[in-house]
Simulated scan of single mutants.
Amino acid sequence: MTGMLYGTPALDAADEKVLAEIEDMRTDLRHRLAETHRWDGQLRRHLQALAIQGSNAIEGYQASAEDIGSIMAGEEPLDASPAVAREIAGYQQAMTYIQLLSRAAVFRYDAGLLHALNFMMIGHHRDKTPGTVRPGAIFISDSGTGEVVYEGPDVETVPGLLDELVDWLNTGDLDAPGYVRAAMAHFNLVKIHPWRDGNGRGSRALQTLVLGRDRILTPEFASIEEWLGQGRTTYDYYNVLGEVGRKRWSPHGDTLPWVRFNLRCHHMQAQKVRQRLREAGEVWTVLEEGVDADGLHTRCVSALYEVFVNRRLRRTMYQADESLSQGQAARDLRELTAKGWLRPYGETKGRFYAPGPRMEVIKADFAARLVPLRDPYRRE
């Protein structure tokens, strides 16, 4: 490496301990996921929706996980505006490509791939020259004060910096832990800021791709984008980006605070995903017993599980999940409503199903059992 990029830091004993705990949790997750379960597809879809939601929320594009699920299925969202739906659809396309690239037998990073991901995300903004290097200088301002908080490197240097980043992605620091390399890929790309728009989303997506190529877990289980999009964490994210990256491209500082921030996020998100995976099995069993006792078809459990995780279900989603005719799906949902599992809202295309009184009881029971997450750097 020629030293033009921000360097990968050495970890200290506390970081190594956190890293080891993350590895243990991820290994445990991988073993659990090796067995197939009826809920796997829905859980994966839910996690992908939450990752897309988190990364876009950071940029101010707010959409519910339910609406994101609809967009992923090619349907009109119920609440999100057309403008936000376009941002979500673009990001989902890039993330779907990243899922495929993570498993590709032949793969190399190159600048064209990074530009292609940017075009997928913001291609609907033709005025922002998507998928090509920005035409001039770029300044990042604080939305509250208007103060410039970061100035990207001179545009003349951007192609060379991207080439160096790509070279590093293929050959640099290969002995560093995957979580650390992924964090540094994210940091260097967001600081190069090569595009007019989509730099943050592109950098977070690259981090997910590096993790996916590491083959630890599939991208939806390895991503920290959901965690980054949560209120307090988003503030911390911007603060550490500013603290480590300073106001101008200056790749000679200590990057350990950034890597440590990412390790904490990985640890917290891994705890959360592990909770969700454990909960999925327990919830499915409870719902199966309820459906069986009511004399309903066992496929109805998938409709109820969707409402458990997402609070909202559309007939078309259930119909596709269970490969049913429109009539079969509508009949099942009517029976679930009559039995108190679901409550319908809206009419025709806007109709959806939310938890009914029996489902609300189950949701409250599981919510009361949730164990608070543990900050791995806060030793008791």
Rank of each mutant, 00 (worst) to 15 (best):
F366E: 01
Q93V: 13
L78R: 01
L78H: 07
W168N: 05
T8K: 06
Y353V: 01
G212L: 01
L211Q: 09
R26S: 09
Q230H: 12
A73C: 11
W249E: 07
L241C: 12
G146E: 11
T8V: 12
L211F: 04
W284D: 02
L78F: 13
R379K: 08
V106A: 07
A116N: 08
E23M: 10
A13I: 10
T285M: 07
R45K: 15
A65Q: 04
D294M: 13
E156G: 11
G350E: 09
C265K: 06
R311K: 14
F221D: 05
M72E: 05
A368R: 13
I52F: 14
A65N: 03
A329E: 02
S102R: 01
I224K: 05
Y305V: 00
A65K: 02
Y6V: 06
L287S: 00
L277V: 12
P82D: 08
V273N: 07
E282H: 08
E66G: 04
S250F: 11
E289S: 07
D214W: 10
P177Q: 03
E87P: 11
P357V: 00
D28M: 06
F352S: 01
I88V: 14
C265E: 04
Y377K: 06
A116E: 11
A85G: 02
A137H: 14
D154T: 14
K247L: 11
E16K: 14
R264K: 15
E35V: 13
G123R: 03
D167A: 14
E16G: 10
D142H: 12
G346V: 06
R134L: 07
G152R: 10
H266F: 09
Y305N: 00
M268L: 15
A364F: 02
D15L: 03
V106Y: 09
E35Q: 14
R86I: 02
N118K: 13
V301C: 03
R278S: 15
L217V: 15
D214S: 15
K17F: 04
N188M: 08
T255F: 01
H266C: 06
V158H: 04
Y109W: 10
A94G: 08
V210G: 03
V286K: 02
A10D: 04
N118H: 11
S141V: 15
P9Y: 04
T27E: 12
V371M: 15
K247M: 14
T316M: 08
R278V: 11
D254H: 12
R379Y: 01
F107W: 07
G295L: 06
T96V: 12
R134T: 09
R213F: 03
G327R: 14
R351C: 01
V148A: 12
A57T: 15
G356M: 00
E335P: 02
G123L: 03
D175R: 12
Y345W: 06
A320Q: 10
N262G: 10
H186T: 00
L78K: 00
M25P: 06
A34S: 15
A111S: 14
D321Y: 08
D294F: 11
Y109L: 10
T208G: 03
L19V: 06
A303H: 01
R379T: 09
G160L: 05
R134K: 14
